[in-house]
Design a binder for these strands. Structure first.
Lengths: 374, 374
DNA sequence: GTTAGCACTCCGAAGAAATGAGTGCTAATT
DNA sequence: AATTAGCACTCATTTCTTCGGAGTGCTAAC
């Protein structure tokens, strides 16, 4: 009953056609487009069944069918055919990525740009970060009297730096002493466990007036805390407007709003959740015949997390789909690459591309230094 | 003939009403709304004259009038009445700004946020930068073998830093020597005059194999060059969609695109031009009775540059107006605050608010350390 | 110089009619 | 028992028409 051969062929046909045309798909057009050996009447019967099973729906009584979230889900899980990118596409993207000025940020920016441009959807890259980052180093560099650059180095090689104002009277030596003391006291701690109290405690042995010392400690604390922040690069949000589902200004605005508010935090958190817990039902395994790093499957979250419509659990994005995957640099650093488009998205193409750029990022930057700040 | 008392009253009325309603303004509604002692017929005659003079136009023959770019220009230059912000608004904005976590970036972000939220338009803040930045310091901090943080300090106190990969074999001492040598060679030079050749020349005395040395020099060069980049913070672009002139998806998309492409560079350059050359005809002097820093008028570009429609000289923004002002930190650092909205913008309110936040920024952060990176 | 009056314009809303893609159901066919 | 042809029906969309009204310009009177 559920999805025998013919049914799945028709469901796939509906989703494929709807993705291509954005118009409800009728029985007749299916028959001709896919030259099936069936009459439209038979197809109609099958469509009715698929609708009863929840895979399809009609926008109104006398219209063709469009996929429901469940329909897309079935399509993505087992129906769609993943193809590899054509070679010239690959080399083109490869070249573009290699052209980038050195530095990690530019490369992520370029990645988001490339993805959004080639797919026509919105792309998002989250900079590498470590889930349970551990403080490794705390350095201070005096820029001029009263101003110092505080550098926080975290497990996995992530470095964050931040300018801070310090009392004029401190000498570089004093600052370095403070930094060293705090560093020793906090080294190895998880960032999330560090509080202002921890910082102060770590520095109890230093003999300086509290009022002055605390200013520096506070700056150090802020710097450490900022190392926890995720950085995100978004590109191509306006692309979404090209798609008919967002030709309505209000809907477009809502989506834009959600994607840009708080510096992309909403989306960043979403992507973050992806790498955090790849829950069984929402994670789509790559089709094994095309999987690039099949050996690592169990050990690392190399899946594509695909959230369709309601599954995103954000009301304004219920017409969207959200595809996320995680890249790794070395053993500890994780980052995410995501793509947001209409539910009626070219999943096949998008997945190929994301996989490709992930591969590229991991290849070309296995241990690139990573600079970030707040 | 040009703009005698009654005419300017009527022009002001039209612009005011059109700003308020977004509907073409008719002769009758002017009379009732502003209870003038005139008949609608008289007003019609005046409207016809104003139209002949180029201040007004009709969308179609039997419609009311709307302002032309010249109409807005006249309004902005001499007709509108600038009011001061109500006290509670001021304290509210002040509090919000003071609540911000320390650091310059957050404050600029907050500024853009505040402005866009309270005005309902899009806001843009350009981080402080110096027009002809001069290299002051070049520091290197070794993070771990093979990785170093390069810090560039520029005249005016701007600091940029960037992680770089350096050959493993270098010791911290060697790196510091290189940095010091290059620093000495380049100190005092304008960033724009520094090239890869200049950098290499500055280091000719160092006795190390070229192939290794050049890697470091290249990284230094890149770091210096990145210090030239402007950083921009944009907020509230989606606000624009609320206004009827952008309810058309395509127009909205064009505007969005222009405002977001290349990380806001288009707009950044626009704002930049504002502080660069305040050309007479496009710069609007603040109405003197409300001017806060009247004494500094000639010495600093404390004007509001207002560009209306075509004056922006970007086709996709021809329905917009663009208001920019420059803030200063200390003597050398300049930054811009801009607001982008429909031509039919509440100029009065917007200008008051921009002026207020500029004042706040300059007050609360006279010499805050400024951290940025690429 | 101002105003009342009037004919005229033209947008936009509201309705009516035609179109056509697509459906579900029934009865005939394989 | 599955498939298909046929047909009546539904309903979004498009096109055309009508009509009201806000607003104008012009003329003639005040």
């Amino acid at each position: 009953m559920s999805l025998d051969g013919r049914k799945s062929v028709i469901l796939k046909a509906v989703v494929d056609d709807y993705i291509a045309t954005a118009e409800p798909v009728g029985s007749k057009s299916i028959v001709t487009r896919h030259n099936l050996n069936l009459s439209s009447a038979t197809v109609r019967n099958i469509l009715a069944e698929l609708e009863k099973q929840g895979y399809l729906m009609q926008p109104h009584t006398s219209a063709g069918r469009i996929p429901t979230d469940e329909g897309y889900r079935a399509y993505v899980d087992s129906l769609m055919t993943l193809t590899d990118l054509p070679e010239d596409e690959k080399t083109r993207m490869e070249n573009e990525l290699n052209d980038v000025f050195s530095g990690f940020k530019p490369i992520l920016r370029k990645t988001a740009e490339l993805l959004s441009e080639t797919t026509g959807y919105a792309a998002l890259a989250v900079a590498p970060h470590s889930k349970d980052s551990i403080l490794r180093q705390l350095k201070i560099l005096m820029i001029e009297p009263g101003r110092a650059l505080i550098v926080v180095v975290v497990s996995g090689g992530l470095v964050k730096n931040r300018m801070a104002r310090v009392p004029n009277m401190f000498t570089l030596e004093q600052l370095i002493e403070i930094a060293n003391t705090v560093e020793q006291g906090l080294q190895g701690k998880r960032l999330s466990d560090i509080t202002m109290v921890t910082v102060e405690t770590s520095a109890y042995s230093i003999e300086l007036p509290d009022s002055l010392l605390n200013q520096v400690l506070y700056e150090a604390y802020v710097s450490i805390k900022q190392a926890e922040n995720l950085e995100t690069y978004t590109n191509g949000i306006t692309n979404l407007f090209q798609h008919p589902e967002f030709r309505n200004v209000d809907r477009a605005m809502n989506v834009m709003d959600t994607l840009t508010k708080n510096g992309g935090m909403v989306v960043g958190m979403l992507a973050d959740r992806a790498s955090a817990r790849p829950a069984a039902e929402t994670v789509t395994e790559e089709h094994s015949d095309l999987s690039i790093e099949a050996e690592g499957r169990k050990a690392y979250p190399d899946y594509f997390m695909i959230r369709i419509g309601q599954e995103i659990a954000i009301e304004t994005l219920e017409d969207c789909s959200f595809i996320t995957t995680t890249y790794r640099l070395g053993d500890q650093l994780l980052g995410d690459i995501s793509l947001i488009g209409p539910k009626r998205m070219n999943y096949d193409d998008v997945i190929s591309r994301i996989r490709f750029v992930r591969y590229e990022i991991q290849q070309s930057l296995p241990s690139e230094p990573i600079e970030t700040d707040s």
